[in-house]
Design a protein around this nucleic acid. Structure first.
Lengths: 330, 330
DNA sequence: CTATCAAACATTATCGTTAATGTCAACACA
DNA sequence: TGTGTTGACATTAACGATAATGTTTGATAG
């Protein structure tokens, strides 16, 4: 139980009449230290309750063995699922994950200082970083990978699903179910992946000779799902593609309040397949990409950048593999 | 854009032909530095894109301005909501939040090293820490607050809801709705707060002369909701109190699969009121405690410990304020 | 005209750990 | 006998920021 303060290397060293360095090397099983000494040091460290000060070793090593995850809102289940998967992959590798959230949709320079300042070894972001952010990150040589929101204008490593094809398949599906008037509840203007999903949807509507009405394609602000949905209902849509499952869930909830049932009264589709990772009391038609593969790819790209320097940025696309209709695979 | 590496205090100092210390003090608006110099230093730091190395200052100051949040599973919406609230409160105070998860139900000594090692300024835990953990935390003088899982045997600051009364009210509610045979889907044995909720339930069943059958009170393992639920159905319960909303959601989903409707065919109640913070496509009968108040209380207790030393541990109980029945306040 | 003081900066030591060198005794080899 | 060699440890110098002292210059007081 000894004293009341932290045990440091020097405390062990003094106890054993060794130097700090010897203790440090002994604990990390380095060469140049006798077997007996190593054993003794380790045992003593254990007895004294030594816990290394990783702040100090981070300073010395220039690495904090921490990966930053960036997204705008902790309370979005999709991000949470991803954060969980990231955490589960990185933990065995000795990396802690630090979540930076609450950025209000944009990854700007103001949010960057706390991250860079903490000397994270890498950044996984679900938000498009601004160019300034990218400059600083590059200047500080921090590997960064963008997940799911690839913007062609950005020069950054990224992992993404095939948004266009996702949108296309939903349109095709709606057609096969005899939808005539399809609407889209999208992310706010400027979110590239939402635009790509919409483009895919439009293309399939065109290919299948369904009507394309611009007023049915909405850019939904964060708390205006209700209004945009009402507009679609006023326009008598019979099928709605939602940017993601969260929006679809909100839409279902609102529709239910209005006494409308899915899919009997109106068809609905989302994107992300949350129900695969979360318990949801409804079954959604949705685009399911392989989240584990997305995360595995992301992390391997990130770790790859950790030891090799940047030559060229690449984007890897992860195929989605199934579309679910009310729980049944098509 | 100057060089390719980090800008440090010494880089600014050399540029301006000042000492590191002067630059440091100038940037932090300390006394002993002339007004002109401060301005010059700040401007130069800005131009050079200086970002302080908080690892270094943490080492020097002995504080990382980081608060650790502990829970077992990132993917639990309740924790996520709480984490979000904590983050939103601490961020303006300059504290980063670091999430430590994946602990599999127990907060044991193995999980502690990475936390202590990082010199966090405080710990907010949603898991009961073991006594060893508590010892080490105290030895290292790290303030810690336990949220929602108060175990009377532990000497620790904590914030909790009145679990007993919550359970009691649900029983009372079931009685008012003419339930005759009430079941409980609880947390695994050993989770104190689940036991308290059950005790509350039992008490109300007794007070209202409803039948108390031990076989209807289940300790549900993480992935056996289905089996335990089936047992309750076999026992012909007409109302089920679930440990929390997540379990209630899972139960609803399973019941729906079986063609049973809530509340027509069977009554169901949860705990936490997730629907207040999350979009849920169902309305749950649930116990709603004031989550913001819980978090505010937690953080104020934590911050209080940061500057005053430990004298005595206390538990504060947060009242729940409403019970919802399918969305209607009782 | 010198002692006193304060403003404005410089020097030095320190946080805990770790990499790069230094030292020294024991032993081998020719 | 002298020259390497090696095992096992010690010494020193970082990492970047900051608190505790020192130093210088100029102004003010007596």
């Amino acid at each position: 139980m000894s004293s009341n303060q932290n045990v440091r290397l020097i405390d062990i060293a003094m106890r054993l009449d060794l130097t700090v360095n010897t203790v440090s090397r002994a604990l990390r099983d380095k060469s140049d230290i006798g077997f007996e000494t190593k054993m003794l040091v380790k045992r003593t460290a254990d007895e004294m309750g030594y816990i290394p000060n990783s702040i100090a070793s981070s300073l010395r090593n220039g690495s904090s063995r921490t990966i930053a995850i960036i997204f705008d809102n902790l309370m979005n289940p999709y991000f949470m699922i991803m954060a969980d998967k990231i955490h589960k992959r990185l933990d065995p590798l000795g990396y802690a994950t630090m979540i930076f959230a609450g950025m209000d949709g944009r990854f700007e320079i103001e949010s960057l200082a706390p991250i860079v300042s903490r000397k994270v070894d890498g950044i996984i972001t679900f938000l498009e970083p601004s160019n300034e952010v990218l400059n600083i990150v590059e200047k500080n040589q921090i590997p960064i990978v963008l997940v799911g929101r690839k913007n062609t204008k950005l020069s950054i490593d990224s992992v993404s699903t095939d948004d266009f094809r996702g949108g296309y398949e939903i349109g095709k599906l709606f057609h096969s179910k005899n939808a005539k008037n399809v609407g889209y509840l999208g992310a706010p203007l400027g979110v590239e992946c939402s635009k790509r999903r919409l483009n895919g949807l439009k293309q399939s509507l065109k290919d299948y000779n369904m009507s394309i009405k611009v007023e049915n394609f909405r850019y939904v602000a964060s708390n205006s799902v209700r209004e945009d949905l009402q507009i679609l209902l006023d326009n008598h849509v019979d099928a709605i593609f939602c940017f993601n499952d969260m929006m679809a869930l909100e839409a279902i909830t609102i529709l239910k309040d209005k006494g409308l049932h899915v899919p009997q009264d109106i068809m609905l589709a989302g994107f992300d397949d949350l129900q695969n990772d979360l318990i949801l009391p409804v079954r959604l038609t949705t685009i399911a990409s392989d989240k584990d593969l997305i995360i595995d790819t992301t992390i391997s790209m990130l770790l790859h950048r950790l030891d090799s320097s940047v030559e060229h940025h690449e984007t890897r696309f992860i195929d989605y593999d199934i579309v679910l209709i009310n729980g049944e695979t098509t």
